[in-house]
Amino acid sequence: MIEVLQTGPLNTVQDLGRFGFRNAGVTSSGAMDRLALMVGNLLVGNAEGEAALEIQTFPFRLRFERDMAVAVTGADCEARLDGRRLPPWWAMPVLSGQVLELDTPRRAARAYLCLAGGIEVEPVMGSRSTSLRGGFGGLEGRFLAANDRLPVAGAAGPAVPQGGFGVMPPETALAAHFPAPEDGTLLVRAVPAGEYALFGAEAERFWTQTWKISSHSDRTGYRLSGEPIRLASPVELRSHGVVPGVVQMPPSGEPIIQMSDANTAGGYPKMAGVIDVDLWRLGQARIGSRIRFVRSSIAEAREAERAVRAYLDDVRCTVPMLAQALAAMSRR
């Protein structure tokens, strides 16, 4: 068990999401930074998709009620274990009674706390992710509150090295495969979507201007602010399916990017689709920060996906090798 001592609102249990029920209006949910969740799980010997805590409001404090292994990935929250600072992207064994604290990150938005064995809340429709709108999944379908206690399954993987260890953050390890920010502006790759042509010459400004992530942004979607892009003449569209990454253009002319808790259907014209492999970077973008869309291609998206897969495979193979090497040396 782990016990939440202090938390802000909107911190939830998440895994990789709930798929196969969009036709019934069930949002996929799942971690906003799926890569951080997967890496954290691999560090503690879990399968990539075990349920973890997604922390996006701070400060957050939690007590471990038994010895276990944990990893903190994603945003650097100056994590402290019993007051001692931990590096970011770090895994270590913890003892029963120890307290982990996370503070507001200076960069990035969300941290993930993965536990060896995974958080053992009851799966709903094949996932442990919290659906806040549906009020199911995760812990009683709601966000965490102080005094909540969460069950943690028994660990199956090899022991995490005693002194702790870390992983090269994806931003470093995969730097060659993602466009670097320009003057603090995050570059997000996207491909034109269904109604792109309706915007005619105006569509060009979608790519050239810098958009700000407005305060009306959450796990459902990011509303962007900037110089509006409007249709020459309004169109009426039938409602159609929507998935995370879809960029809609409401009549206001300021785009909405659908995120993890994306609506399952919508009727706004679709300007573009953010490539799936770039969604984790958006998931770490903060309210008030700036982004720009970069026109991409399916080939480029596939190439980036292969690089991410190779990085994850490398982490999965190297973690047990490191544990074995350290164990062999400590036997001397």
């Binding site: 590096p87 992207w89 702790g164 870390g166 992983v167 090269m168 190297t318 973690v319």
Partner: peptide
């Protein structure tokens, strides 16, 4: 106290 790191492939040791 951690004073530095050693990188080994994708992993980091204190």
């Amino acid at each position: 106290q951690i004073v530095g790191f050693v990188g080994i492939g994708p992993l980091i040791m204190p």
